[in-house]
Design a protein around this nucleic acid. Sequence first.
DNA 1: AAAAAAATCAGGAAAAATCCCCTTCGCAAA
DNA 2: TTTGCGAAGGGGATTTTTCCTGATTTTTTT
Lengths: 216, 216
Amino acid sequence: MNSDVHTVVIVDDHLLLSGSLEKLINSFEGFQVLFHASNGRELQLKLKKESKKPSVILLDINMPVMDGFETAEWLTEHHPDIKFLALSMEDDEQTILKMLRKGAKGYLLKDIHPDKLKIALQETVSKGFYHSDKVATTMLHALHNNNKASEESFKENELIFLQLACSEMTYKEIADQMNLSPKTIDGYRQELFNRLHIKNRVGLVIYALKNNLIHI
Amino acid sequence: MNSDVHTVVIVDDHLLLSGSLEKLINSFEGFQVLFHASNGRELQLKLKKESKKPSVILLDINMPVMDGFETAEWLTEHHPDIKFLALSMEDDEQTILKMLRKGAKGYLLKDIHPDKLKIALQETVSKGFYHSDKVATTMLHALHNNNKASEESFKENELIFLQLACSEMTYKEIADQMNLSPKTIDGYRQELFNRLHIKNRVGLVIYALKNNLIHI
DNA sequence: AAAAAAATCAGGAAAAATCCCCTTCGCAAA
DNA sequence: TTTGCGAAGGGGATTTTTCCTGATTTTTTT
């Protein structure tokens, strides 16, 4: 294994994808898969054990135990020298931006052509980042109307309320759970209805689901 | 290409998965990928054009244009000699049973180990089917309490109501839409609450989402 | 055709959700 | 110091949801 071979680590809970992805990447000239992990926790352990550090990490977002967001934070904090690319099926703006803000050097959708993956890996090691046209467009779009971003950014309590609202709890029960007055909860509700242009609690649930604010 | 090589076709809209899966399958002794399709419609066209018929088809469920269910029906109808395995991330009982009823020779979860895929392909060509422990258990479970199945089977109007209830419409508006009295709608609601053990409309929405009765 | 079962619809009431306008408090900017 | 702002909370009214019980009509079974 000579020194100009770049090593890759795959973090994904779908064994079939990570296993076959390994075959694909090993077929790319100049790239070699070092190991897999099926979640962030496992990645932490294996990085500690391995003496060799990977050139690039392919990081899935939806994983059990420790998901892509947490893992991205940890990587940026503890291994700022290792570049990582997010790899996900979600193509919504919020998710993409969130991963890029957490330090991802690029964002790959799982339905890209295998050749694109090769290009992404090559550019990541050579230029330090890779942004597909779609992601670049998304970033521009986000910059362009960050006014709309305010509509879709939530305060901590709003997020908690949002998640509890997507359950069978009554508002009174939610108020108890959050140690707040039912009237305060009513305030959160009204504010969100206005901001998101929705008419009732079902709309709230649908919104939260569509925007990956909760997952069921 | 000698005659004891079994050919495989992959139907999946995630190019990255199907592309890398091809590498994996080609590395299995005795197996060779014939071609891909990214949905059922494309499969139809390519099967017509190709003179060679595949031994096995790996069929994803969630696809645009023509999904796995439709494709399974078409295959069973027009190519009963081609065996196909369902390949999906959904592990809920309803989906598994639905695919098996439509003629799938097995059901593979996308998080299986690559070695399992090899075994599945081998058993499918040799024995004609492959059922993992998990799927076998699910089938037994389904047979065991098909009473519960009645809990989870819906009449036409119940399904329509369920879908409309997952919107911002009031029950009165739903009644108008369905040309029924609001009191009838109230009856549907009450009946579903009892049968599904849920307490309010949010529970209904969550249930519908979890069981793929609607998709947003 | 008669009986049974299922679907549709109603009355009435309590609980929850929704809406609108208002007060207080703390904190920070002017 | 005053002014302004946002978060927490309140009063009170209306609409919608939820629940329970019973009646009528339609469909199915016998």
